[in-house]
């Protein structure tokens, strides 16, 4: 049962990665590792910034 649960969690994590759901977690990791002095953006700020930057850097989606 545990193995199934673990497998399902792994899949969910993978799927989340593909969807880009873990972007904030990665940003925090980067922020911590690069030793910035100022505090990182909050989750809300980060996602706002995330989509607002897409406004100015559109990415094509394929046919």
């Amino acid at each position: 049962m545990n193995a199934i649960l673990e497998g399902f969690r792994g899949f969910a994590r993978y799927f989340g990665g593909v969807m880009g759901a873990d972007a904030y977690a990665k940003y925090l990791e980067h922020h911590e590792a690069s030793g910035h002095a100022e505090a990182p953006m909050t989750e809300r700020e980060f996602w706002r910034d995330h989509t607002d930057r897409q406004d100015n850097n559109p990415q094509g989606r394929c046919c």
């Binding site: 993978y14 990665g17 593909v18 972007a23 925090l28 980067h30 910034d49 930057r53 394929c62």
Partner: peptide, 25 residues
């Protein structure tokens, strides 16, 4: 690396991500 646009991504995840970006109708 900036934690936003330039982010090291696990190869298996990136494979799915890239595939989703290229495949469409």
């Amino acid at each position: 690396a900036d934690g936003k646009d330039y982010v090291r991504t696990d190869r298996n995840v990136l494979f799915g991500h890239h595939f989703a970006a290229i495949a469409g109708a």
